[in-house]
């Protein structure tokens, strides 16, 4: 029933640096199924961002197998398999919000009419309808990040990869955006890969939590969340939530103890 979308088998990625080789990913095995919301959590240097970038073909593994929709990451990219959201919104200041969302559509050669239709659709999805004609500097940081999510959704990729998208935002805005991401996920049924270093964020959002640890970057624990799909913010006070948070914390601590 569960259809695997992203599969990593004995994945290794070694960076050659001036200080010698750095093992960013070591023997990573992971299967992400269609419709999963997977969080990658761990201290810096654990390879969580590197893994996400490898899925997006921004880094190239030095060993093992990584497939996205059964293809190599490069092929999957050409098939527009994923949208990527970075830590900073990275909107072009010289384009309006609608213009920024149009960017991938222009590059991918959508027709004018279809561009307009999709822009209206994703603006509505991130609740930014009516802001299309604004310039990025006229929007708050949280709204800018929502616009960048809209940009990643515009070309209908089935996979949404998010690299600490709310890391630079304050906690109140972050809570709201977390709620919205969950809503978005429920409405669109996309597969989401989400990098974070916040335990509550990971537990609140995910169906699967991947705990990673550094030197070498590896997976130490994979937790399938028993939380229901419907998650109000106050679920964070429930016993189940606290139990999972505890297990994540333990996993992070275990990863650190062998330093």
């Amino acid at each position: 029933m569960a259809e695997p979308v992203i599969v990593a088998r004995d994945l290794n990625l070694v960076f050659q640096t001036n200080d010698g080789p750095v093992h960013a990913l070591k023997d990573v095995n992971l299967t992400i199924n269609k419709g999963d919301f997977v969080s990658f959590i761990g201290p810096s240097g654990c390879g969580k961002t590197t893994f996400l970038r490898a899925i997006a073909a921004l880094e190239h593994p030095t060993g093992g197998v990584l497939t996205v929709n059964g293809m190599t990451p490069d092929e999957a990219r050409r098939k527009r398999a994923y949208g990527y959201v970075f830590q900073a919104a990275g909107l072009y200041p010289w384009r309006t919000i609608a213009g920024n969302i149009r960017l991938p559509l222009e590059i991918m050669g959508f027709s004018k009419a279809e561009q307009e239709e999709r822009i209206a659709q994703v603006l509505d999805l991130v609740e930014l309808s009516g802001f299309g004609k604004k310039f990025p500097w006229q929007l708050s940081g949280g709204m800018q990040q929502r616009a960048s999510i809209a940009r990643a959704l515009a070309f209908d990729a089935d996979i949404l990869l998010m690299d600490e998208p709310f890391g630079a935002l304050d906690e109140i805005v972050r809570d709201r955006l977390n709620e919205e991401v969950l809503k978005l996920w429920a409405r669109t049924g996309k597969t989401i890969g989400f990098v974070t270093h916040s335990i509550p964020e990971a537990v609140y959002l995910s169906t699967k939590i991947v705990v990673m640890s550094p030197r070498p970057g590896r997976i130490t624990d994979v937790i399938d969340s028993p939380l229901p799909k419907e998650r109000p913010l106050d679920i964070r006070d429930s016993a189940a939530f606290i139990e999972i948070s505890h297990r994540v914390r333990e996993g992070l601590r275990a990863g650190h103890s062998d330093e």
Binding site: R53, L58, M108
Partner: peptide
């Protein structure tokens, strides 16, 4: 680099 990475996730050409 982030801006360039973004365009490369769109498979944008050098000209684009």
């Amino acid at each position: 680099q982030m801006q360039l990475d973004l365009l490369s996730t769109y498979s944008a050409s050098q000209g684009q």
